[in-house]
Design a protein around this nucleic acid. Structure first.
Lengths: 232, 232
DNA sequence: TCAATAGTGTCTGTGAGACACTATATC
DNA sequence: GATATAGTGTCTCACAGACACTATTGA
């Protein structure tokens, strides 16, 4: 049989960048400046360039959008390739990555030109997004919730020095569910390599000052943090 | 700034198809008939076609290679896009999928023309494979081991009716580690929706005949099956 | 002193791991 | 009977969940 030439496509990396502001999980959305879907909110992303791996594309976009270093946590969420997901003549297939940013004072909520907004995830999930970005966002959110169980990435949401209470706020914001204060404290401090004391304390307005911690060496959390049934 | 046109690439789906033969985990490898890497063992795969999602590409290749229906379990392992991973002029980026096939009598170990071989995974991991298929295989193996903990996919390795002992053989083959017979039996039969009795028994040569089960409705296994530390 | 927040003690239930025991088949 | 395989009982330890308690600060 005559072999047809392989189909040529464009490849993009789209980013689901999460952070926590005011104890709520937010995701970075940009307003599309071009067709298709001009004016609609979308996930930031961009095309693969020559000499780049798709992870490098994702990191480059991440740096452009957040202005942060490229040492942030990135994990693959999925490949989205349904025919017709992008109306342009050449097929555009995207690889979605999940990124986690600490809750820092943001220059302009993204240094990129186009209007970037930190949007509460529940609003973003309910909104109508460009392309299949709604589906991507839901998949990434579920993956983030699962990752919090099995890994120590929650510290990536925090500043270099943080309190156990702040770390607990991360879990509560991502899971959207309260977590027992006492049990969480023990779990986190006893898990080897999750957090380590800095030796400092920080006054917490009123009340006993909290001990400060920094991230430990471990990346996997074994045994995992159990996730409330109602969040699954 | 002048925007350059997006890079055009070829996209492939490569398959890591696992099965169990003689209580050992095997993977399907094909011998490459064309350049590059002609003659070297490689994972089966193929190019994305027009009107197809990449999952459909993977299912099509899976059906071609195994002759089995397209209801087999498929899960995304990763995207492999390093520049230079394929020496051809147009960049070839692959999405790797993990598939699980039951241990059935195979027509010719794959109906495809090219020489397809069921290879024990430890041999395949040690061998030199085409492209970055060695890395893909290692990633897929680790993912399969993890999936066995958290899901009920182990039943996909089995015939429609199976014994608890056969299911345990799956875990031992994939993990490469013995699993306690008694505790496994309780875990599997008490986990809701993992397996259900058919009502039949099957004589097992000598000894008490074993009760037959079929797969249940559940896909996630909660709480998970704990994996021996030495396999992590 | 009280209010507020941080951190500990302790009891209970679930389930994993280890391993002895019972059940049912072939020879 | 002996042997082989399937399945159960049971003890111990680790740990999650619930929640009462103590500790340390500011007002």
């Amino acid at each position: 049989m005559a072999s047809r030439p392989p189909l040529l496509v464009n490849l993009t990396a789209d980013l689901v960048i999460f952070t926590i502001r005011d104890a709520r999980l937010h995701v970075l959305l940009v307003e599309r400046g071009n067709e298709p879907y001009r004016g609609l909110p979308a996930l930031p992303g961009g095309f693969l360039r020559e000499g780049e791996s798709i992870e490098q594309t994702a990191r480059r976009e991440l740096a452009e959008e957040t202005g942060l270093g490229d040492d942030l946590h990135l994990e693959l969420v999925g490949v989205y390739s349904a025919p017709g997901r992008d109306p342009r003549p050449v097929r555009v297939i995207t690889t979605a990555f999940l990124a986690i940013a600490p809750d820092l004072p943001w220059p302009t909520a993204g240094s990129d030109a186009s209007a970037a907004h930190w949007t509460p995830v529940d609003e973003a999930v309910a909104a109508s997004l460009a392309f299949d970005h709604g589906e991507i966002l839901r998949d990434a959110l579920e993956q983030a919730r699962t990752s919090l169980q099995h890994s120590t990435i929650a510290v990536e949401f925090c500043a270099p020095e943080f309190t156990i209470g702040e770390l607990r706020d991360v879990y509560e914001a991502v899971w959207g569910h309260p977590v027992d204060r006492a049990n969480f404290h023990r779990k986190v401090t006893q898990a080897e390599g999750f957090v380590e004391k800095t030796g400092e304390k920080r006054p917490s307005g009123a009340g006993r000052p909290s001990v400060l911690y920094r991230a430990g060496d471990a990346t996997v959390l074994e045994p995992p943090m159990t996730r409330p049934v109602s969040t699954r």
